[in-house]
Write a protein that binds this DNA or RNA. Sequence first.
DNA 1: TTGAAAGCGTTACCAG
DNA 2: CTGGTAACGCTTTCAA
Lengths: 349, 349
Amino acid sequence: MQATIQDVAAKAGVSISTVSRAFTRPDMVSDRTRAKVMRVADELDFNISRSAATLKSGRTNRVAMLMNDGITSWFNAATLAGLESVLHPAGYDIALFPHIDTAQTRQRFFETLPIRRNVDAVFVASFAIDPHEVEQLKRAQVPIIGINTPDIDGFDASVSIDDEQGMLMAAQHLIKLGHRHLVYVCADAVHTLSASIDKREQGFRRACETAQANGIALDWQVISVPRDQSALASISSPQALSAILSRLLELDTFPDAICCQADMIAIPLMLRLERYGKRTPRDYSIIGFDDSTYADVLGLTTIRQDPQTMGADAARKALRLIAGKPLDDAHEIAPVSLMPRNTDDVVDR
Amino acid sequence: MQATIQDVAAKAGVSISTVSRAFTRPDMVSDRTRAKVMRVADELDFNISRSAATLKSGRTNRVAMLMNDGITSWFNAATLAGLESVLHPAGYDIALFPHIDTAQTRQRFFETLPIRRNVDAVFVASFAIDPHEVEQLKRAQVPIIGINTPDIDGFDASVSIDDEQGMLMAAQHLIKLGHRHLVYVCADAVHTLSASIDKREQGFRRACETAQANGIALDWQVISVPRDQSALASISSPQALSAILSRLLELDTFPDAICCQADMIAIPLMLRLERYGKRTPRDYSIIGFDDSTYADVLGLTTIRQDPQTMGADAARKALRLIAGKPLDDAHEIAPVSLMPRNTDDVVDR
DNA sequence: TTGAAAGCGTTACCAG
DNA sequence: CTGGTAACGCTTTCAA
């Protein structure tokens, strides 16, 4: 029923070697021969079998992407899109391993190590793996590439933003506008190991402390609420959000500036605050992080990162690593930038 | 370097057949033998090679997912998550084919048919394929499963929502609340073939016409703006949105109810309208479609669909089809439901 | 530029 | 329950 390379070779009157080359090394075959082979192949609905090709060649043409939460999260979806954009054209499939943040999934993965002998590279997106896990991963004997991993120990390559620097930039921006009562709001995962975004708080703290050290009278604090029970919940569950909101409204004096761990927190927060009569930028400034869905159309001032480009960069590094080529910049820091929009303003007194 | 099944067999003192069975048919091997095999396998970092297994078995353990726009769109990401949740545990990889909506990508796909002989099933998400393309796809000789495809001709199975019914429900809800001046807003793709969401307009029209036929004096219209030039743009590009906004504000009398083709339009729209002094539900009611990101936290009344569940259902159907088992419900209509929240209210006169 | 031949590492059939 | 053995459909030297 399904034609094999033999059938094509026979019908085209060439050897199977030639058919193989017509597909994988077109330049090694004369134009005439190749044209004939391709025509016959099409007539016979023939195509090179990946299974056979990968078996013979030793490469699996497959990579794994380990991720913190779900495929649907803004960061993961964008990163995947980036990986896919360079890996697919290069002939690779991407095996997805979502929710490595749940204890069960994570343990099962690192115990059974399903990728062993079956991928050419492993991508780790936005969470940290501990030394023991690094050891396990290394048993797969393939390059390990990190994308926004808090640490680069054990990784053959990585592309990450400087989360701390980004949030520092955000807080400094607000301070420069004249704000003196700053709050940082975040939802921290309970059971999960450290994720890249946990570093953002440090940036906020550093900005405030530096300002104070420079004689600026600043009133600042961090409001941290636990992330929802379920590790599968997004960072901005209704519960987490309500918790943040009430903590904010309980404050003796409402802050004049709010730094949010992520847009996913900033956006619902500013919309909810509106119902309490707090309008931005009239009553307070607010700044997000990520520049994710709706940030532009809502006019949210934020720190922009571009996970799709980061994914594409990471994929290119992987390709080189797989090919055994050297990497001039194994560990790359991707840029973040301030996107000034309409939720921040100078303080006038 | 890498251990093969031979090495494991030798070290465990069994035949390679036994090693193979220990992995793929555990119940056909005695507990003792299996334990020993698995221990040795782990010591040797051995794992069954997919390439070899798929070559020999004839199955590719791979499926393709064709999608309209990008991986990052709310619908596609959720659908993929659903597919993945059942396909991954079953041992399948998912090859992604995004942006089949751009003429170039689409043409290349259907001409080269890269899936031929290399997938066990094909999923088509949320766009229509024409008869010729169906023919091409069929040459792959594998089950074709649709997810929210406008048409089910040529598909072996499908799971879809009733887009028309959903929007009918939305409009009827607003009419029942007493609204008499309704507008439907949508952004329609220019170059793309029909997508499932294009049917929603019909539901709106039918609701209005039916109401009128029943003697309700209704004033209604459809505001349709072209989607952004770039086929890669989301349905709610800033341009499309601005166009909708001005069309709306140009109206002689502002509508008391707005039905939106998607939440992606409703959400930015309601937030922009607020800047023009139009507040919902005080000044008008607005209803979205999808129940996508932020709809809940923003309190947007909408029509809910669950693409993740739909993806999982589609995947289960595919698995049966691949196994040659019959399908009791090849073509399934997934439910939609009205999610009443805070952007709609009864009209008091 | 093309052909012949030797496997790649499994699965599955058939015996025992 | 276990072992022997013949493929599966290619890629890749090596020669011509």
